[in-house]
Design a protein around this nucleic acid. Structure first.
Length: 597
RNA sequence: GGCCCCGUAGCUCAACUGGAUAGAGCAUCCGCCUUCUAAGCGGACGGUUGCAGGUUCGAGCCCUGCCGGGGUCGCCA
C-alpha cells in the first residue's frame, strides 16, 4: 500500500491530467510547516504558465477535482492558499487506516525501488599491516548503511571491503622482514617452496615495522629502491615473496574482521587489490592496442581531460590530470588496480552501479579512474559514483588526532566509547539490577549507537567535529535517545503481554496520535530519498523524527493506564508499529537496540 | 594559479533538489514525575542564510563577481 503522499499524488496527478495538463504537476509532499495542512501540492504554479490561466484559478480547479474524485473519508479538507498552494489534510480515519496497514506490514510501511539494480559498494578499505584508524570509521559505517538501505529497498547489493593488500607497502614490509630475519627461506632465490605454514611475524610485528619503514622510505632512496624491487618481484610472482605476503594478509585479516565485528559490519567480499592484478597485463595491452595508453614523463598514462587550461608556470595543462597506469618502474599504481577492479566487477557481477565510499579528498583520483573506464568502454561513467565524505575533525577543526598528535586507532576509539558509555550508565544508575554481562552488552550498544548516529546524522559530504562528550551526552538528538525510545516501547509491550492486553485497530483522535502516524507514514519516502541520494542522514533524520513523535505520544497518550479498552488496544498497535519501524530504521543505520537500558 | 567542496541561530547540523512565516539538537530561561523507564515531555529566547548583483510569480538552493575556510594538483594509497 502506498504511503499517504503517494496516494494523494495519484489523486492530484489525475486532476491535472483531467485538465489537460502534465500529471507530473500533481506531486504531493509533506508540508514543511504546521498550519498549512499536513500535505501540499505546489504544481499549480509552474503549470499555470503552460495552461495560460492564473495559478490560483488552476489550483481551485485541481482542488475541486480532487474533492469530487477522492475516495470517501480520505480527506478532511482540500484548500487553496497563497498564490496557488493546495493544502491537503487527511481524516482521522485515513490515518487510522494507514497506521493499521503499517502495523500489518512486515516492511513497516516501506515501499520497494521501482527499478531493482545490481549494485557494488566499495567501502572500509582496510589495509594489510596498518591498524584501522578513525579515518576508516566513516567509510565503514556510511558504506554499511548504504548497503543495508539499498538492499532493503529491493536492490541486489554486494559489499566489498576492497582490501589494501598490494603495491609498494607490501614491498616495504617484505624488505623490513628481510632485514630482521634474513635467514628465512622466503628470501632465498634458490628456494622454490614449500614454505612454512606458521607466519614468521605477528600482527604486532607488522604494526611495528610498517610505520618505521614507511618513514625511512621517504628519506632513504636506497630503501625505496629495494622496496620497489620487492614490490615488483611480488607482483611478478616470485614464490618466496608470495608466500610471505600470504602470511601478511592472513594475519591482518583475522585482526580486522574482529574489529568489524565490534562495529556490526560485514562484507560480501574481501576482494583485495591483488585480485585485480591478474587482469592488469591484459588491460594494459588492450589500452595500448587501442592507442589510449600514452608515454608521458617516463610513465604510461591515459589522458582523460576535456580541455587544456593555463597552469601557474605559464604553460598549459589538462583540466583533469591523466590517469597513471604504469609507473616508470613498470609497476601497477592504485589507479591501475582501481581500473582493473572495475573490469573484474563487470565480468564477475555485471552490476548496474558501482559506489565508492571513500574520503572526499580522493575525488580527483576517482574522477580520473571513472573517466578512464568510460573512455576505454569498460563501464559507463554514469554508473560510477564516488560517495565522498568529509573528515572527522578534532575540536580544533583539523583532522582528528590523539593528544600526542598521532592517529587514533579505531579499536582504541571503540574501547573509549564503550568505557564512557559504561561510566554514564553507572552514574545514571541505569540497568543497575541487570547482570554484568547484559550491562556490558548495553554499554557496547549504547556506545556504538552514539558513535554511528553522531556520524550518520550529518550529511556525509561535510566534515564534522568529533566530540565524545556531545555524542554521549544522553540528552537530545543522539543515538542513546533513539535506543531509549525503542527500549521504552519494548517495556510497554512486555508489560502489556504480562497483563494480557490485546492490541486492536488504531483509533486516531489525539493530536499526538496524528503526529505519530504522519511520522510513521514518512518512512517509505525517507528510504527512497536516502537511497537515491546515497545519504544515510535522511534515514537518521527519519528515525529521530519518529522517536520524537513517539515520545510526544508517550507523554500525552497513556497506553497501559488507559481505561477505555478500544483506545488502549489501538494505542498498543501504534506502539507495536512504531517499535517495528524504529528498529528497522536503526538497523538500516547499523544500530542494534538492547532489550533494556 | 587550475580543478573540486563548504560558508545557515552563540555552538553542532537540517531544510524532501525552486515553494508559504528557514527547522532540529546543545546552551540559556520557564513549566511538568502518587500514571507505562524524566537518558523524557511542553513552552520561551535565538536569523539581513558570508557580501553584491542577476534569472522569475517565488531563491538558503540556479547564474555571475567578490570575501572567507578546506581539499587536491602523476610514479604512496
Amino acid at each position: 500500500m502506498d504511503d499517504l503522499a503517494r496516494q494523494l499524488t495519484t489523486l492530484c496527478s489525475a486532476a491535472f491530467a483531467a485538465l489537460g495538463l502534465d500529471s507530473g504537476h500533481g506531486a504531493v509532499r509533506r508540508s514543511d510547516r504546521a498550519g498549512n495542512g499536513d500535505f501540499q501540492c505546489n504544481g499549480a504554479m509552474p503549470a499555470a504558465r503552460s495552461a495560460g490561466r492564473p495559478p490560483r484559478d488552476l489550483a481551485e480547479a485541481v482542488a475541486a477535482h480532487v474533492r469530487t474524485h477522492a475516495p470517501p473519508d480520505l480527506l478532511a479538507s482540500v484548500e487553496v492558499a497563497g498564490p496557488g498552494f493546495i493544502n491537503l489534510v487527511p481524516t482521522h480515519g485515513a490515518l487510522a487506516g494507514r497506521a493499521a496497514a503499517i502495523a500489518a506490514d512486515p516492511r513497516a510501511g516501506a515501499g520497494l525501488a521501482s527499478q531493482p539494480l545490481r549494485v557494488v559498494i566499495d567501502y572500509a578499505g582496510p589495509n594489510v599491516a596498518k591498524p584501522m584508524h578513525v579515518g576508516h570509521l566513516r567509510s565503514t559505517i556510511i558504506g554499511d548503511s548504504l548497503k543495508r538501505m539499498l538492499r532493503f529497498a529491493g536492490h541486489t547489493v554486494w559489499g566489498d571491503a576492497h582490501f589494501g593488500d598490494w603495491g609498494y607497502q607490501m614491498g616495504l614490509l617484505i624488505v623490513a622482514v628481510a632485514d630482521e630475519q634474513p635467514h628465512l627461506p622466503y628470501f632465498d632465490d634458490a628456494h622454490q617452496g614449500p614454505f612454512p605454514d606458521t607466519p614468521p611475524v605477528t600482527l604486532a610485528d607488522l604494526e611495528r615495522l610498517y610505520p618505521v619503514y614507511s618513514a625511512r622510505g621517504k628519506s632513504e632512496e636506497g630503501l625505496r629502491e629495494r622496496a620497489r624491487r620487492a614490490t615488483r618481484a611480488l607482483q611478478d610472482g616470485r614464490p618466496g615473496h608470495r608466500a610471505l605476503w600470504r602470511h601478511f594478509v592472513a594475519v591482518s585479516r583475522t585482526a580486522l574482521e574482529r574489529e568489524f565485528a565490534n562495529l556490526g559490519v560485514t562484507f560480501d567480499f574481501w576482494k583485495g587489490e591483488s585480485d585485480a592484478d591478474p587482469l592488469i597485463a591484459g588491460m594494459v595491452a588492450d589500452l595500448e592496442a587501442r592507442g589510449l595508453l600514452v608515454d608521458d614523463a617516463g610513465a604510461r598514462v591515459v589522458f582523460v581531460h576535456d580541455r587544456m587550461v593555463p597552469k601557474k608556470d605559464g604553460s598549459e595543462g589538462p583540466d583533469v590530470p591523466p590517469l597513471l597506469v604504469v609507473s616508470s618502474e613498470g609497476s601497477a599504481m592504485y589507479g591501475t588496480t582501481d581500473l582493473a577492479t572495475i573490469l573484474d566487477r563487470v565480468r564477475s557481477l555485471a552490476p548496474d552501479l558501482m559506489l565508492y565510499c571513500v574520503d572526499q579528498r580522493q575525488a580527483d583520483h576517482f574522477e580520473q579512474v571513472f573517466r578512464a573506464a568510460d573512455r576505454a568502454g569498460y563501464f559507463a561513467r554514469a554508473g560510477l559514483e564516488h560517495i565522498g565524505f568529509g573528515t572527522m575533525n578534532g575540536k580544533d577543526g583539523k583532522p582528528f588526532k590523539t593528544r600526542e598528535g598521532g592517529v587514533l586507532k579505531l579499536a582504541d576509539l571503540i574501547d573509549m566509547v564503550r568505557e564512557r558509555a559504561r561510566t554514564k550508565l553507572d552514574e545514571a544508575g541505569m540497568a543497575a539490577d541487570l547482570p554484568q554481562a547484559e550491562r556490558a552488552t548495553i554499554a557496547h550498544r549504547v556506545g556504538i549507537a552514539a558513535l554511528k548516529f553522531a556520524d550518520l546524522q550529518n550529511f556525509r559530504g561535510t566534515s564534522y567535529v568529533f566530540d565524545l562528550d556531545r555524542f554521549l551526552a544522553f540528552e537530545g538528538k543522539t543515538g542513546p535517545y533513539l535506543l531509549y525510545a525503542a527500549v521504552r516501547i519494548r517495556s510497554i509491550l512486555r508489560k502489556a503481554a504480562e497483563a494480557g492486553h490485546a492490541a486492536g485497530p488504531p483509533v486516531i483522535a489525539h493530536e499526538a496520535e496524528r503526529a505519530l502516524v504522519l511520522a510513521l507514514d514518512g518512512f517509505s519516502r525517507a528510504l527512497m530519498a536516502a537511497c537515491d541520494q546515497r545519504a544515510p542522514h535522511i534515514m537518521a533524520e527519519h528515525a529521530y523524527g519518529l522517536a520524537s513523535a513517539f515520545s510526544g505520544f508517550y507523554a500525552a497518550c497513556p497506553i497501559l493506564p488507559e481505561p477505555d479498552a478500544a483506545v488502549r488496544e489501538g494505542r498498543l498497535t501504534l506502539a507495536t508499529a512504531t517499535l517495528a519501524q524504529l528498529e528497522r530504521a536503526l538497523d538500516l543505520l547499523g544500530i542494534d537496540v538492547p532489550d533494556r537500558m
